[in-house]
């Protein structure tokens, strides 16, 4: 069977949910730092309702910092603006950062322990060794 899907790598929306809190000795483990070696920007379909429903689930500060750290925050405001539901221009910016900026290769870094989780071929490897559990 052939799947005709665009291949996607780790998006910042996924990154926004990831943490290293399950590691031994780590309490918060959030947000994970990003060391990006390869970044890909790909266009995906914009849906304003989807984006405005996702926003309340985000850690906005973590999203902005992540985007900024890899040079892709653009003119996304550092603070989440009010009444964003009706601000299509703003939602498009969020859409871009959340869903169009992808990390192909690089690392995620635990803010507490410094442990590095490699991202290769767009897949973060979050597997822990036994002594880290």
């Amino acid at each position: 069977m052939v799947f005709r899907c665009a291949v996607h790598n780790m998006k910042l929306l996924t990154h926004n949910m990831l943490t290293s809190k399950c590691m031994k000795g780590v309490t918060v483990g959030y947000p994970l730092g990003i060391v990006a070696k390869d970044i890909k920007v790909s266009e995906t379909e914009f849906n304003s309702e989807f984006v405005s429903r996702i926003i309340p689930k985000l850690d906005w500060n973590a999203l902005w910092k992540a985007a900024d750290s890899i040079g892709h925050s653009g003119d996304l405001p550092q603070q989440l603006m009010e009444d964003y539901e009706n601000n299509e221009e703003f939602l498009k910016k969020v859409h871009h950062v959340l869903l169009e900026v992808e990390i192909i290769n690089g690392e995620l870094v635990c803010p507490e322990s410094g442990r590095k989780f490699p991202i290769s071929q767009g897949i973060p490897n979050m597997l822990l060794n036994e002594d880290e559990l």
Partner: peptide, 17 residues
């Protein structure tokens, strides 16, 4: 991932979420 989905590897005993 090749089918276009978001994925990471982990053990289900320690979800990195």
């Amino acid at each position: 991932k090749d089918r276009g989905f978001q994925v990471f590897t982990c053990n289900c005993l320690a979800l990195p979420l």
